[in-house]
Simulated assay, not measured.
Amino acid sequence: MTYDFKGKTAIVTGGGSGIGAAIVKKLAADGAKVIVADISMEHAEEIASEVGENAKAVKVDTGDAASVEAMVKAAEEFGGGLHLLVNNAGIGGANAPVGEYPVDSWKKVIDVNLHGVFYGMRYAIPAMQKAGGGSIVNIASILGSVGIAGSSAYVATKHALLGLTKSSALEYGDKGIRINAVGPGFIKTPLLDANLDQDTMDYLANQHAMKRLGTPEEVANLTCFLLSDDASFITGSYHLVDGGYTAQ
């Protein structure tokens, strides 16, 4: 499915790899100019180079408000305005029970996964209002609706992200800005490949009704639909792409 993003400028945080990179490529293929925003300039530049002239790499630390503000300004300069935002950047944090969870890891996960999304919306929404409206998709997780042992910080941020999405959608629903969240299941990305052995990957695959991991492209397809005018009456909602994980 293709969408008409011609004349639109988008930002994708965490755009240098995995789900973010797939979203960047889909948006650009459908006509958007895209800011590939990532903490790793090397990864951002690699994806921007693959896409070509419709993409620009920007280094961003989503846990730092000034860095996010500069990212939004770069998007306005690159595309003449800002119309689309995908808050995708996130980290997993330590794996430990709450009573032993490292405080520094807790703070870092909150900074990136929650504060970073707030900063993105805080600076993108005024830019979208200047451009005449827009659409935002916050990449949450299946762990925005269920828990998992050992990942309290990550789960807390993804639950909070849904509340932020719903509240902000109510604030801007009559102002031309739609805001939704996507909840991926376990997705086969380079990060997963690098950190999990095959037995663990197989175990996770079997937790989904479809008995496989998802792909970044499957998440990108749903995300771009929600960003598009085809989803013009959808706001404040949470859409799963989880192979049936949460149906159990």
Rank of each mutant, 00 (worst) to 15 (best):
L196Y: 15
Y238A: 09
N195H: 15
D242F: 02
S228A: 07
I234H: 04
L213R: 12
N87W: 00
Q198M: 11
K108S: 13
G173N: 13
F118T: 07
L164P: 05
G236P: 09
S67K: 08
C224Q: 03
K108W: 05
L82T: 12
D202M: 12
I136D: 06
G236T: 11
A149N: 15
A70L: 03
N195T: 15
R122Q: 11
I177C: 13
K166N: 08
E45P: 07
P216R: 01
A149C: 14
M210P: 01
S151I: 04
T157F: 01
G31R: 05
Y123N: 11
T200W: 00
S152E: 14
V86H: 02
Y101L: 06
P97F: 13
A44H: 03
G92P: 07
S237K: 07
L161S: 10
N113S: 06
G92A: 09
A131L: 06
M41D: 14
V155H: 00
G15D: 09
F118M: 10
V72N: 08
R122L: 08
G7P: 12
S49F: 07
N87L: 00
A55L: 10
G92Y: 09
Q248M: 09
A89T: 08
S40Q: 08
I23M: 04
S168D: 07
E69I: 05
E217H: 08
V24E: 09
S40G: 14
G163P: 05
E218Y: 07
M128A: 13
E42K: 13
A94D: 15
A209I: 01
D111G: 04
T223V: 12
G52V: 03
K211A: 04
I142M: 04
I91L: 11
E217C: 02
A169T: 14
I35L: 10
D30Y: 10
R212N: 09
L82A: 08
G144N: 02
I177S: 04
K26H: 12
V219A: 05
L162N: 09
D230P: 03
E171R: 09
D242W: 00
H239M: 01
K26G: 02
Y3G: 07
G63K: 13
A169M: 11
V60A: 09
G80N: 14
V137M: 04
